[in-house]
Amino acid sequence: MPDDVATRPVRLPDDRWHPLEIVFWLGLVTAFFLFPGYRVLGSQILITGLFAVSLDLILGYAGIVSLGHAAFFGVGAYTAGLLAVYGWGEPITGLFAGAATAAIVGYGTSFLVVRGHDLARLMMTLGIGFLLFEAANKAAFVTGGVDGLSGVVMWKLFGVFTFDFAGRTAYLYSLAVLFILFVVLRRVVASPFGLSLIGIRERSRRIPAIGAPLRQREVAIFTISAAVAGMAGALLAQTTQFVGLDVLSFSRSAEVLIILILGGAGRLYGGLIGAVVYMVAQDILSTYISAAYWRFWIGLLLVAIVLVAHGGILDGATAIYRRLTRGRS
């Protein structure tokens, strides 16, 4: 086996589109037509999915643990929200502004985060999250504090599509942003840069030995991840036209971590699948089973899924898929 590895030419991962991926994205488009009453929920699932993908970049690929990723989500949300409150309601530029400020905050804090190891990183990200939460809470004259930021007025998307009541624009806009970012990120993780991230995750001490700058790579992916999280936050602010203090809360950081682990970290799609399963389950359970005790059932679901598939839903599904295809050949 080691011989095999040694003699095999080094190749980048195959990044052709698998048929199942195409089915997945067509499914998201079809959902728009099939469930017209669920478009608002759908748009929030897509946004949470994008947020989970951003966490996957640092956790799943570079192995940087974080309990405060909502910090960047919140910075993006407040940036886009405040722009619109103060008269600039153009969605696309607002989106990029959210990503830019989140990237700046991400770049600035990345040096603090990448210094330590896992436990220190957990503490550091947690601390940064708390800092920003309380700062936004104290700066109530800007952010609205606990009462939230209202008066977010969005202009029409491309000057044509209003952010309508039933979530049509919100869903398609979120889906388009998610897809474009996903295509870019898919390329990033399949590049030599992406491979070096996996190297960092697996054996960070050996990375300098192959001539790759460890800290710079970590700073780079942390900044990219913060920018993507900021874009997700900006999307939420724009589609809900409100920013609550909870965008920066610890519970949002924890929830996105649960979603990513549930779906499966380290493969981009995990975050999306996790968001779909978690939020659809939450909606069904709290609507049809019990508005008061749905957390019991979601807890049961989480335990059951992780018990059956240790690496999350995607790992479990991959194992089943492999077994099936092997059986056929």
Binding site: V40, L41, Q44, V146, G148, F165, A166, G167, L236, T240, F242, V243, G244, L245, D246, V247
Partner: peptide, 11 residues
């Protein structure tokens, strides 16, 4: 206190 969820549920 989850305004985004409250808004969505209202919708």
């Amino acid at each position: 206190a989850q305004p985004d969820i409250a808004r969505r549920l209202t919708q």
